[in-house]
Write a protein that binds this DNA or RNA. Structure first.
Lengths: 224, 224
DNA sequence: CCTACCGATCGGTAGG
DNA sequence: CCTACCGATCGGTAGG
C-alpha cells in the first residue's frame, strides 16, 4: 500500500503474492493433468517457475493444501470451460446435448495439456483411500447427478422416453465422454472426439421419444 | 542342482530366484493397479516383501525393466482372465458378447485390487511421452483391433447390420467397459458393473440386424 | 519470498 | 540375495 503506482517496477510485483499464487496453481494444474496430482512436487513447481522450493512451499504450507487448491482451481476452469457454456441452452434435452458437447469441445480444445483434469483424477484416485479419493467420489457424484437432473427434465418435457432409466442413461453418456478424452490424449489426435459425438448422438436418439426432434449436436467440430 | 531333494528347507528356497522374481512381479502388479506404475518404487516393493532394496533391484537392474516386466506379467494375467475365457465362444456375435462379458467379469471379480491394470495404465500414460506411453498405444491399438475384428466377423455372418461402422462400434463397446471399471473401483461397489452390462446389451441390440437373435449377455451376474 | 538446513527415500553402484 | 554406500530429490522447518 505504500507505493501503489510505482511504474519503475521490473516485471512482476503487480499484485504481489496473489499473482504468484495464481501462477503456481496454473502450472500445478497443467503438470497434474499430464503426470497426475501425485507426481506434482513442490521442487518441480519451483524449478518450472524459477522460484525457490521454500518460496513455493510458503504459499501452501503443506503438500496436501497444494493438492486441494490445485483441484479447486481446476474446478473453476471446468466451471468456466464446460459447465457455463454447456448449461447455457434451453432447459431439457437441448441442455443435456449442449453439456455433452461442451465437454467434448473442452477435450478437443486441449484446455488442459494432459486432457480432462478430472478424468485423470478419477483414474488416479479411484483406488487409493484418502481425502483426495473422498473428494473425487463427491465430484463424480455431482457430475452424474447433474446429468441425471437434466435427463429428468427432458423426460418431464416429453423429449426423452418416459421409460428411460436416468441413472443408466447418465452412465451411457458419461462413458463415451471419458473414453474420447483418454483416447484423444493417447493418440494426440483430437479427431477421436468425433467418435464421442457420434456415440452421444446415437444414445440420445435411441432414448428420444421420436427421432423427428431437432438434434443440435451436429457434426461440425468446434473451431478454435 | 547339488541338493534337489532337501526336505530340511525352511520355507521358501523351492525354485530359488525364479520364485522370488514371480513374487516381486505379483506384488508389483497389485501395487501398480492401485497406485499407478509411476508410484511403484523398488524400496516399497522391498518393504512389502521383506527383502533388501538391493535384493529386489538385482532382479531387474533398472526401474525401467521392472516396469516393463510388470506390464508383461499383467498382460499374461489379462490373457488368462479375459482373453482366454472371452474368446472361448462360437465365432461371431457370440464371441464379441463373450469378450465384453469376460472383461466385466474380470472387473467384478477384482482380479487386480485397483481395477483393470491397463485402464490404470491408459490414464496414467496417455499424456507423458516415453517408452511406456508408446507401449500403451500399441496395447490399446491391439485391443481395439480385436474388437473390430470380431465385429467384422459378426457382420459377415449377418449377425450385425452391414451398415455398422466397426471402429465406431468398437468405441461404443469399449467406453462402458472402461467406465464400469473406474466407477466400480471408485465406489467400491461391483454392482456398477451391471450398468456396463446393460449398456453393452443395448448397444449390441441396436447394432444387430434383428432383435430376434438370441442374446447371451443376460442379466445374471457372475458368481464367484 | 529467500538461504540453509533436517531426516527420509529415491534409483543405482560396489563388492561380496 | 546381502551390507554399505552414492548423489539427487522429497516434504517440511528455522529464521529472516
Amino acid at each position: 500500500m505504500a507505493k501503489p503506482d510505482d511504474r519503475t517496477v521490473r516485471t512482476r510485483r503487480r499484485s504481489d503474492g496473489a499473482r504468484t499464487h495464481e501462477q503456481i496453481l496454473a502450472t500445478a494444474m497443467e503438470l497434474a493433468s499430464v503426470e497426475g496430482l501425485g507426481s506434482l512436487t513442490i521442487g518441480r513447481l519451483a524449478r518450472e517457475l524459477d522460484l525457490s522450493k521454500s518460496g513455493v512451499f510458503a504459499h501452501f504450507r503443506s503438500k496436501a493444501r497444494l493438492q486441494q487448491q490445485t483441484i479447486e482451481a481446476a474446478r473453476e476452469v471446468f466451471e468456466r470451460e464446460v459447465l457455463e457454456p454447456g448449461l447455457d441452452a434451453p432447459d431439457g434435452l437441448a441442455r443435456l446435448e449442449s453439456l455433452c458437447e461442451a465437454y467434448l469441445s473442452y477435450v478437443e480444445r486441449g484446455v488442459f495439456p494432459g486432457g480432462c483434469f478430472f478424468a485423470q483424477l478419477l483414474a488416479e484416485f479411484d483406488a487409493p483411500r484418502g481425502p483426495i479419493h473422498d473428494e473425487v467420489v463427491e465430484l463424480q457424484r455431482g457430475w452424474l447427478a447433474l446429468l441425471e437432473r437434466l435427463i429428468g427434465t427432458a423426460k418431464e418435457r416429453g423429449e426423452l422416453d418416459s421409460s428411460v432409466d436416468a441413472q443408466q442413461l447418465a452412465f451411457d453418456l458419461y462413458a463415451p465422454l471419458e473414453l474420447a478424452n483418454y483416447l484423444s490424449v493417447l493418440r494426440r489426435d483430437p479427431t477421436v472426439v468425433e467418435r464421442g459425438r457420434t456415440a452421444i448422438r446415437a444414445t440420445l436418439t435411441s432414448a428420444g421419444r421420436r427421432e423427428g426432434d431437432r438434434n443440435r449436436l451436429g457434426g461440425r467440430p468446434t473451431k478454435e
